[in-house]
Amino acid sequence: MSITSARGVAFASAVAVIALASQAQAQQNNNPLPPGDGRDIVSVACSQCHYLGTIAKIRDGAAGWRVYVSNMVLRGAQLTPAEVDKVVNYLATNLGPGINLPPPRPVALPDGSGKQLVETRCALCHDLERVAAVKRKKQDWTPIVANMAAWGAPVTADEAKTITNYLAANFGD
């Protein structure tokens, strides 16, 4: 359930790649972002340096999106604090957990307590292929799940514990 592997700022580093600018422009002309208040700022400010398509494929809560956007400001995005708030609100509203997700690839998870939670909560933000990507020790799964909950995954503390135990049991190292 490496939601944080889908998090972060892929587009961050792309700031460096000037050659992407013309492609970003082309993509802006075919804007993949859903309509909503703030879309114009995202389209203009973010497309200076990177594709918009990746944004459209990520789902995250407000806290998670703020991490992305803050990192972008450090990398040169021209967004004032008020605009950062507006951008985060747009992203969390229109690309939040479970909103307009593309059809997932079928992934058969092993049975066990927590399977349903993983299928219904984790898959709100990312494909379940990510869950099965790597085996980890329980002490490594714990902060990953906690981090996702902090960033916006809709899970209670008990549910997070159940998910962690399920992952450690079935995808443990």
């Binding site: 592997s5 980890r136 981090n147």
Partner: peptide, 9 residues
Amino acid sequence: EGLGAVSDW
């Protein structure tokens, strides 16, 4: 940081 940051696969 960024996409795939947590991944050690």
